[in-house]
Design a binder for these strands. Structure first.
Length: 403
RNA sequence: GGCCCCAUAGUCUAGCGGUUAGGACGUUGCCCUCUCACGGCAGUAACACGGGUUCGAAUCCCGUUGGGGCUGCCA
């Protein structure tokens, strides 16, 4: 493609240095004039070119290659103004004369983005280019390349960018904004995708409000396919959005709750190297109770990481530390005593034992729960202690209360 | 500096000439409850500013301000 442009005299070699470019730009800015590359190298004589080429070669460099926009515009007067219909921004118009002869090939002999990208897309038969709106200003350049080659441009859609709290763009090249970081933090890929899809864009579906059927905004999807079906790029907003992790957490929680326990197990094993922990849990409790525990946990937490942290309390021989926490040792012993005399560790049974212990010791039911929770899990918050006790079973509970 | 994109609560948004400006996250209170979370109910909070068009503007037009992007050969 570059050769085709060369043959038609639409490109030229440039020997300008970075210093020269910067200087001429500075002058332009100071005098409040638009900066456009002056095209100086377009008119170099063969002798000058050879000389400059040689000195570049000594440094191991090549002359860069620019598109000669003046020549391209000569091909067709309609090229003076580059218009394209952006799928999210509508009709966009640019003045070709303000673009300036940009680089197609670099000093180190590589194709520059504005050339490589559009040519690549063309060769691959790409019909729709969807990218961030930071590329809007690059689009007329790329269209010009295509026009110079006599090709038709694809459909463009420029979607809004995501920004951090500091207002800076969240770029894929920015390590702190990497998706991998959020995956490791315990967010599901589906939830991340859901969040990303729904910010800066609106999805609608039929639903019911106050008993009446209407079109409602849809924010949380049950599967990726549904999201794909409902996606409408034309509804995308042209304004940028600030990343909101709280909302991601919320969406993640919903995906977690809607996920089968088996799938969560797969994720924990493959993505969080929790295979050993899970195997231990499975061996300790048996298949069906194991699935039940995982199913229980996935409804109680917002991220995979939080679930992983909680699994530990289900194992044998956990060492509960109660340093610096106040507790009623007598109440604990009373609970222990009463629990020893039952074999029914179902929720209702435990509930009754707690009631009896409370009234028998002049304590509140709440105090009993707290004491139990403290000795069984080491904490004062967390999921239903009745359920945890049910899963743990008599032996483990009695053991923890016996310290 | 030039060119371009954008502008509704703290955040994401609905709205496309007449609405009590709707929803979601957050937040506050209440209910549920052994705690946290979930769930339910209630509350909080927004049309950047100035002109114009119009009987009527969040909505259409212009300007200002503000944010963002491109402007080097990084993608």
């Amino acid at each position: 493609h570059l050769n085709a442009l060369k043959e038609n005299g639409l490109v030229y070699e440039c020997f300008c240095t970075e210093e020269e470019i910067l200087k001429s730009k500075e002058i332009a800015v100071k005098s409040k004039r638009p900066y456009i590359y002056n095209g100086r190298c377009a008119n170099l004589s063969a002798g000058e070119k050879e000389k400059l080429s040689l000195s570049l070669k000594e440094k191991g460099l090549y002359p860069s290659i620019r598109l000669n926009i003046a020549q391209v515009l000569r091909m067709d007067s309609s090229f003076d103004s580059i218009e394209f219909n952006d799928a999210v921004h509508g009709r966009l118009t640019f003045n070709s004369k303000l673009i300036g002869d940009f680089i197609l090939k670099t000093e180190d002999n590589r194709f520059a983005y504005n050339f490589a990208s559009i040519i690549d897309d063309y060769d691959l038969g790409i019909t729709h280019v969807i990218r961030g709106e930071d590329h809007i200003s690059n689009t007329p350049k790329q269209i010009l390349v295509l026009k110079a080659l006599g090709k038709e441009p694809p459909v463009f859609a420029h979607i809004s960018l995501l920004y951090g709290k500091d207002g800076k763009i969240m770029s894929k090249r920015d390590a702190a904004a990497n998706i991998q970081y959020y995956k490791e933090k315990g967010y599901l890929p589906e939830a991340i995708l859901n969040y990303l899809a729904v910010t800066g864009n609106t999805f609608t579906a039929h639903g019911y409000r106050n008993g009446k059927k209407e079109i409602l905004e849809k924010e949380i999807f049950s599967d990726i396919l549904e999201m794909a079906e409902l996606l409408d790029i034309k509804k995308a907003k042209g304004s940028g959005a600030i990343f909101n992790e709280e909302k991601l957490r919320h969406i993640n929680e919903r995906w977690l709750a809607g996920m089968p326990a088996e799938k969560l197990i797969k994720i924990l094993t493959e993505k969080f190297q929790a295979g050993d922990v899970l195997k231990k849990l499975q061996e300790t409790y048996g298949e069906s109770l194991y699935i039940e525990i995982i199913g229980f946990l996935k409804n109680e937490f917002k991220t995979v990481k939080e679930i992983l942290k909680e699994i530990d309390i289900f194992f044998d021989g956990v060492n509960i530390k109660l340093d610096g926490i106040e507790y009623d040792i007598k109440l604990k012993d009373a609970l222990l005593n009463n629990l020893r005399h039952t074999d029914d560790f179902g929720e209702n049974s435990i509930k009754n034992i707690i009631k009896e212990t409370a009234s028998g010791n002049g304590k509140t039911v709440k105090e009993c729960y707290e004491t139990l929770r403290l000795f069984v899990t080491g904490r004062l918050d967390g999921p239903s202690i009745l359920k945890i006790i049910k899963f743990l079973g008599k032996d483990r509970v009695v053991e923890r209360l016996s310290v």
